[in-house]
Design a protein around this nucleic acid. Structure first.
Length: 521
RNA sequence: GCCGCCUUAGCUCAGUUGGUUAGAGCGCUAGAUUGUGGAUCUAGAGGUCCCCUGUUCAAGCCAGGGAGGCGGUACCA
């Protein structure tokens, strides 16, 4: 019969469930996020960036995500049409809205315009481990200058931010490259002209996989293709053996060079100029030095490197790494990637690498889309959620829930005003407090207080009331004391961590308990 | 998008060659204890065995299709 009732209503009832790739976030994580955002904000503001907030929704064409030849937004973004039939989209990053803002307010903004922004962004794509369809980014950008000092500062900012968040020097690295270098290398193997645009992208994608797959798989991706462990085949760039060999030489030298830098950094040799300058492939006389693009890119990197080292940032913080790719059709010059380098084991003992927690670079074309006039810009974006997940693994102990409010138990339903008054008294003293608002008995109220993480409860039944007293029970100390008591009678009679005080001393008594647990309000 | 694996209670999972009323541990609720969160004991609630169609006297189990989840891969500002 009970069954029939269920079945009867089931079809029309909605299922309580979250859309794939979205998640609910509880008090403990939110408190942690807030602290992180405050820290990042402090660093960004110290560099002189000012805050800007733009809406979560923009016109789709302003975000620049239309499929070629189709009057329809790109996959990957959440889009819908407005009343007037215009396409709107949820922002998928904070840079495209910045470009729109700068273009719209170009006349009045100070140039260079330096702003930071944080907010939720949305991507309509398949979620993966640690990848969601809604997440928080924290960006800083300098718009309106091609001065490479702006790029150097972005790198410093990234390093300072990670350190402010408690990531030790050596547990992270900011990698810098220049898209002109890779473009030059690709040009050097003859992939020039419009007809090779697709191949150039495939090559860049292959190089981008170096960290993930290693050199052998990159070689396959540059050639015919690669089969993954599920048996799926990825078509390669189809380069000739010669072209592959040339690219692989570059890639392997580049990672060798980066490895040398890291090992120098580990041994404390953080300003060793020979190592720092990178491998000979890009120095004068090296095999790629004929390409003008390579030369330009290399010289820009040298300028940035000079600024960084001059400011005291060594190879233990920021290095040049020629294998960094980042956004494919987006960046036009220097690119940056913030990578966490420490390794941790998951619960099964497998090593987990977090990899990139932020990135950015110089994008000289974004504002130009609107204005038709070159407005060079450079910036950096932190993936807050991903970084937070990494930090949680780094300090695994720090996942504890925040303390809840002090709970005033309702022992006598006829005395609600009295209990309410106690809660108010605590609130006025700056102590988070609540009167129990349910209707259950004392045992249930104790369980409730326990679940809320209350540091203590206030108990006043008729006995205490008659004497003008209240009982304060320290739930944290009480839980510790309980562990030593096996007998229920003793547990009840000893009333661990419970004291009786004058009702007039309520605030002082609670403060004493809070202070015991490190709360000073 | 493509490939592989998976789906039984709130959670983690058993479930025989297809055979009566589908189980365990944990969790939850209540009692033992008229005013004390823990421990112990007892009792209770909780199920569309992912969905649909088929095979069969009989399907959690077999077949086909679908959905959802996980992992890999592709795309990724």
């Amino acid at each position: 019969m009970a069954k029939e009732k269920k079945v009867a209503g089931a079809g029309s009832r909605p299922e309580a469930r979250l859309p794939k790739g979205f998640r609910d976030i509880g008090a403990a994580e939110l408190a942690q996020t807030r602290a992180m955002l405050d820290t990042i904000r402090g660093v960004y503001e110290s560099y002189g960036f000012e805050q800007l907030e733009t809406p979560a929704i923009e016109y789709t064409d302003a975000l620049g995500k239309f499929l070629p030849d189709q009057d329809r937004p790109n996959e990957g973004v959440f889009s819908f049409t407005d009343d007037d039939g215009q396409w709107l989209s949820l922002r998928y990053d904070l840079t495209a809205p910045l470009a729109r803002y700068v273009a719209e307010n170009f006349q009045t903004l100070p140039k260079p315009f330096r702003r930071y922004a944080t907010g939720t962004v949305y991507r309509n794509e398949k979620p993966g481990p640690g990848r969601f369809r809604q997440f928080t980014q924290f960006d800083a950008d300098t718009v309106g200058t091609d001065n490479l000092a702006a790029d150097a500062e972005i790198c410093m900012l990234a390093a300072d931010t990670l350190e402010a968040l408690g990531i030790k020097r050596g547990d992270y690295v900011i990698k810098v490259n220049n898209r002109k270098v890779l473009d030059g290398v690709i040009e050097a193997i003859g992939l020039v002209g419009q007809e090779n645009a697709g191949r150039r992208l495939t090559v860049l994608r292959a190089i981008d996989k170096l960290d993930k797959f290693g050199p052998e798989d990159v070689r396959l991706l540059l050639g015919d293709g690669r089969k993954d462990e599920s048996g799926d085949f990825t078509k390669g760039a189809g380069l000739s053996p010669n072209q592959v060999a040339t690219l692989m030489e570059f890639i392997e030298r580049a990672s060798e060079s980066a490895a040398l830098m890291r090992s120098a950094a580990r041994s404390g040799d953080i300003f060793n100029n020979d190592v720092d300058q990178g491998y000979f492939v890009l120095r004068e006389g090296g095999s790629f030095y004929q390409s003008q693009l390579c030369i330009d890119g290399h010289q820009e990197l040298e300028t940035i490197r000079g600024l960084l080292r001059g400011a005291g940032y060594g190879m233990n913080q920021i290095i040049i790494d020629y294998s960094v790719v980042r956004g494919l059709e987006y960046y036009t010059g220097p690119v940056f990637e913030a990578e966490l380098t420490f390794e941790v084991k998951d619960e099964k003992g497998n090593p987990v690498r977090f990899g990139s927690v932020g990135g950015g670079g110089r994008y000289d074309g974004l504002v130009e889309r609107f204005l038709g006039q070159k407005v060079p810009a450079t910036g950096f974006s932190i993936g807050v959620s991903r970084l937070q997940a990494a930090l949680n693994v780094l300090n695994a102990a720090d996942a504890s829930a925040p303390l809840g409010p002090v709970v005033v138990l309702v022992m006598d339903k006829g005395e609600l005003p009295r209990y309410q008054r106690m809660a108010q008294e605590l609130r006025r003293a700056g102590i988070r407090a609540e009167m129990y608002l349910g209707t259950s008995g004392m045992k249930a109220q104790m369980k409730y207080a326990d679940k809320r993480g209350a540091p203590c409860v206030i108990i006043q039944g008729s006995d205490e009331r008659d004497k003008g007293e209240v009982q304060l029970k320290d739930l944290i100390e009480g839980a510790k004391a309980a562990a030593a008591i096996a007998d229920n009678k003793e547990w009840k009679e000893s009333r661990p961590a419970q004291v009786s005080i004058k009702e007039t001393d309520l605030v002082a008594g609670v403060r004493e308990i809070l202070a015991r647990h490190g709360v000073t309000s």
